[in-house]
Design a protein around this nucleic acid. Sequence first.
DNA 1: CTCCTGTTTGGGAGTAACTGTCATTAGTGT
DNA 2: ACACTAATGACAGTTACTCCCAAACAGGAG
Lengths: 202, 202
Amino acid sequence: MTEPQPKGSPTVGRRERKKARTRAAIQHEALRLFGEKGYDRTTMEEIAEAADVSASTLFRHFSSKEALVLTDEYDPLIIGACRSQPAELGAVEAIRRGILGVFEHMSEEALADIRVRAELAVSVPSLRAAMLDQLAQAIRDVTTIVAERAGRTSDDFAVATLAGAIMGVMLAAELYWVEHPESELFALVDDALAHLERGLTL
Amino acid sequence: MTEPQPKGSPTVGRRERKKARTRAAIQHEALRLFGEKGYDRTTMEEIAEAADVSASTLFRHFSSKEALVLTDEYDPLIIGACRSQPAELGAVEAIRRGILGVFEHMSEEALADIRVRAELAVSVPSLRAAMLDQLAQAIRDVTTIVAERAGRTSDDFAVATLAGAIMGVMLAAELYWVEHPESELFALVDDALAHLERGLTL
DNA sequence: CTCCTGTTTGGGAGTAACTGTCATTAGTGT
DNA sequence: ACACTAATGACAGTTACTCCCAAACAGGAG
């Protein structure tokens, strides 16, 4: 066990850096091509070509074409942010603040990226479909958070129901956002969760 | 314009009946094979073989492998049932009664079918994914119903939020049901919507 | 520097879900 | 019986994805 990172590099050696760069390059080229030519009209081979890697390598980094669009690193951040909210807050409020906290610290670039992905994810059937896997994972995560704050187990049906409602209103916000381009995602998510906390009265 | 249906046949002629029978046979064999061999280990050709049709015909009836599991005829029934609830009921209550009304009139066989599908839809990634398309459509349908009852437009964000919450709690009920086989789907859906109407208090 | 080890990559063969086309068959209205 | 349309079948082609094996390469030990 000699020191793993001798100098400035905070995480790892050249190997992993190269890997990360390759991965980023692939995703970058993929999103570019999807934007230029359309998702369906872009083949995995073209993406591999553009990123100057073999098709094998592409599939090792991204297990599916959908993953090229849907993969991001925000979910763990949001979960952490929700968890670290003051304990006296209710679950919905904690999640609301957690989400908005993460959004606030994002660059304009990253936000634009999210919008592109969301538009793709809504307009391309196979992507729209693949999103549910993310949604299901999100429901599980939310269930855990809700259970923690309520002092109940994740098996509690009331907890599951609330988690479902939370993800439901957030999904509705996202869909509304894509259909109304002039709106702002944060504001909608904020509104939706606030509306939920007030009991969804019309 | 001579009379389309001369005798007792309420809808159509032999051609469409045959078509419907072929379609039903395909789906039946598909679900059987999926149950026996597993979804991934069953090919479209095997299904075509088992239903005694060509692969072409299979794809004409079901545009994708997922559609074989996810296609059903209940959504329009449920929508109709919700619409025909007394006008004085709130949206959530109308939907609750509409859904339970349809479920009540279903045979044990049909219910078992639904269970098999739900289990497949949860356990098989590509199906889990494809469900979101159904979910999105359901959210749109629910949005319409909610808007009607609230005397608002479908563009109203509060309406969209409520619709999202309704589908969210129903999805949560379905997921809970699959994870807790001893529970009853109706009861869970009923509970979930009732919980929602009471404001999702823990 | 040199060898050794484990990881990343590339290449190629193979599978299976689709797609499109065209000829054939089978119901339907006249 | 005859024409018309809808359903089917057969076939070739595309593409996402998997498996496998060999080459290149980074990192540590002698």
